[in-house]
C-alpha cells in the first residue's frame, strides 16, 4: 500500500499525455507552437526553421497569383503539405465581407491540396494599417458568418477579455488574443489582460483553446504566455527576422515547453522578503540581529 501511495503521488506531479496535446476542435497536435511562413529570407531557411520549431501547424496567406517570391521561389514548392496542417489566414482584410471571401478562397486552395487544414481559418479583420490591431465589430461579424458557413474559426482578437468572450460566444473554435501588435516584438504587453481572457474564456470550459497570437519578440515572451496558462502561442516575425532564424525557432520550441511545464507545475507565490534555502540550524557564523 505504501508503495502505491508513493507511486500515485509521483504520478500527480508527472505531466500526463493529455497535458502534452494541443486540442483545437477535433484536431490534436503534439506541439503547442504555431508558426508563420512569412518574411523569411529564402525558402530553405523557412523549411529549416519550421523543422526546428517542432510546429505541427503553420500559417499561410492567400494572395493574387504572383507565384514566386523575389528569389523566384513558390511557397508551395517548399512547404511539405503532407507534414504540416496548414492554417490559412485572412491577413490584410479590413472588413468582415473581405475576410469571408478570403477564408473561402483559402478553404478552396486547401481542398485542392487535400490538406487537413481546409475548413479552418485564422481570422483577422484588422482595424487600421498602422497598428494592425483587430477590429472587434468586424471580427465578430465575420466569426458569425464563417461559423454559419461551416468553418472552424480561430479568431485573432485584442487582449480585451470581453471582446474575446464575445468571439467565443459567437462560435469561434479558438480565440487568439494578441500579446502586442503583429510583428512588433513587444511580447506580452498586458499579462493581466491575457490572464483575464484565459479566466473568462475557460470558465466552466477548461479545455477551450486560447492561443496567444502576435507580438512575440524572443523566447521569454513565449514562456510568459504559456506560464499564464495559454494553450499555445502563434508567432512568425520573431523567428523569421531573427539573425539566426533556425536557432531562434529551436529557442521558441524550448520556451514553449518550458512555459507549459512551469504552468502545470504551479509557481510559488511571490513574497516581499527572502526565505532561506539553506537551514538556519547549525549555522556557525554571526547572524545580525541575533
Amino acid at each position: 500500500m505504501a508503495h502505491s501511495a508513493i507511486e500515485s503521488k509521483h504520478l500527480e506531479t508527472t505531466v500526463s499525455p493529455a497535458d502534452e496535446t494541443l486540442v483545437i476542435g477535433d484536431r490534436r497536435f503534439t506541439s503547442r507552437l504555431i508558426v508563420g511562413t512569412g518574411k523569411y529570407a529564402d525558402n530553405k531557411t523557412m523549411q529549416q526553421a519550421l523543422d526546428a520549431s517542432g510546429a505541427d501547424v503553420v500559417t499561410v496567406a492567400v494572395r493574387r497569383d504572383r507565384l514566386m517570391n523575389e528569389h523566384g521561389e513558390s511557397l508551395l514548392d517548399s512547404l511539405d503539405v503532407k507534414r504540416y496542417t496548414i492554417l490559412p489566414n485572412t491577413a490584410g482584410c479590413f472588413t468582415a465581407h473581405d475576410a469571408v471571401r478570403v477564408a473561402r478562397l483559402g478553404r478552396e486552395l486547401l481542398h485542392q491540396l487535400k490538406n487537413p487544414g481546409a475548413n479552418w481559418v485564422k481570422l483577422e479583420v484588422l482595424g487600421d494599417k498602422k497598428t494592425l490591431l483587430p477590429d472587434p465589430a468586424g471580427t465578430l461579424d465575420a466569426v458569425k458568418e464563417l461559423v454559419a458557413d461551416g468553418f472552424e474559426v480561430l479568431a485573432y482578437s485584442s487582449d480585451d477579455p470581453i471582446a474575446a468572450l464575445r468571439l467565443k460566444e459567437a462560435g469561434a473554435t479558438s480565440v487568439m488574443p494578441a500579446g502586442s501588435p503583429i510583428g512588433s516584438g513587444q511580447g506580452v504587453m498586458n499579462p493581466a489582460n491575457i490572464a483575464l481572457c484565459l479566466e473568462l474564456l475557460k470558465d466552466g470550459d477548461l479545455s477551450y483553446p486560447v492561443i496567444v497570437d502576435a507580438g512575440v519578440g524572443t523566447a521569454s515572451d513565449v514562456t510568459i504566455a504559456m506560464e499564464l496558462g495559454a494553450d499555445g502561442v502563434l508567432l512568425n516575425t520573431g523567428i523569421a527576422h531573427a539573425r539566426n532564424p533556425v536557432r531562434m525557432a529551436r529557442a521558441m520550441r524550448q520556451a514553449c515547453q518550458a512555459g507549459r511545464d512551469a504552468y502545470l507545475s504551479g509557481r510559488i507565490p511571490k513574497r516581499k522578503y527572502a526565505t532561506a534555502s539553506s537551514p538556519w540550524e547549525g549555522v556557525i557564523s554571526y547572524i545580525p540581529g541575533e
Binding site: 508563420g36 500559417t59 492567400v62 497569383d65 508551395l76 502563434l234 512568425n236
Partner: peptide, 10 residues
C-alpha cells in the same frame, strides 16, 4: 476575376 494562391504569411 481573382486568381489566388497560397503565399508565406503569419
Amino acid at each position: 476575376i481573382e486568381l489566388v494562391t497560397l503565399v508565406g504569411g503569419g
